[in-house]
Simulated assay, not measured.
Amino acid sequence: MLSFAAAVFLLIITPGPGVLSTAGMGAAYGFRPTLRYVFGLWAGNNLVALAVITGVAAIVLGVPVVRNVLLVASVVYLLYLAARIAFAGTRVAFIEAKRPPGIAAALMLQAINPKAYAVNTTLFTGFAYAPDNLVWETASKLVIFNLFWIPIHLAWAWAGVTLERLNLGVRHQFHINVVMALAMLGVVILALLSSFGAN
């Protein structure tokens, strides 16, 4: 169980689209909109966990056409979300960035987030510490997972909000938002490359 808890901590705290977009939301829009977004990420991640636990994810992602469609959809959507973060508070004609992404956007992100599937698959198919009681093991894994997931994402949100509270100039804030958006895309590209390498 301790090795599972350590794995949860290390896998969640490392940058991925969820935590990076949370920090970006905090920096771009402040704490309250970010809390709504984090709630959506949390709900979406638990839905991904249930899909992995029940085997639905393996069945759906086992179909090459579906997997490729989801990969393309994830890239397109993450580009859109990264642009929303990068251009928050700016007057750019082709994107309306004043209204922050909310719960629905976060749910959508988790549904197509490659890291969410990889982490949940690793955690729920490995680290068997109660093989004689699979129901208890799965339930306790969900509890432990969420006990780490919630404070880690709130910490990333706080880090983003702290950047926003520094009252940096518009130009500096824009650069921070762009860096966060690019970092999010970089992690996604690495996940996609490793996915293609595994096939």
Rank of each mutant, 00 (worst) to 15 (best):
A5T: 12
F9E: 09
F9A: 12
F9I: 10
L10Q: 11
L10I: 14
T14W: 10
T14S: 15
P17A: 14
G18C: 09
G18Y: 00
T22H: 03
M25G: 06
Y29P: 00
G30D: 03
F31L: 15
F31A: 11
R32G: 08
R32L: 12
L35Y: 07
R36K: 15
L41H: 00
W42D: 02
G44E: 04
N45V: 07
V48P: 00
A49V: 11
G55P: 03
G55K: 02
A57Y: 07
A58H: 11
I59L: 13
V60F: 08
V65Y: 10
V66F: 08
R67W: 11
V69H: 09
L70I: 10
Y77V: 05
L78T: 04
A82P: 02
A82M: 05
R84S: 08
F87G: 01
F87Y: 09
R91E: 15
V92T: 13
F94W: 15
F94M: 14
I95Q: 01
I95Y: 04
K98L: 08
R99V: 14
P101M: 09
P101V: 05
I103S: 02
A106T: 01
L107P: 02
M108D: 03
M108G: 12
M108A: 15
L109C: 13
K115I: 06
A116Q: 00
A116I: 03
Y117I: 05
V119E: 00
V119G: 02
V119F: 07
L123A: 02
L123R: 01
F124A: 05
F124W: 12
F127P: 01
F127K: 08
F127L: 11
Y129I: 12
D132T: 11
D132C: 08
N133F: 07
W136R: 12
E137L: 05
T138P: 03
S140N: 10
K141S: 00
V143Q: 11
I144G: 03
F145M: 06
N146W: 08
L147K: 11
I150V: 15
L154D: 08
L154V: 12
A155D: 05
A155I: 11
W158N: 09
A159K: 08
V161L: 10
T162V: 11
L168Y: 07
V170R: 15
H172S: 15
Q173E: 11
Q173A: 04
Q173I: 04
L182T: 04
M184C: 08
I189P: 03
L190R: 09
A191M: 13
S194H: 15
F196N: 06
A198I: 06
A198L: 09
N199Y: 08
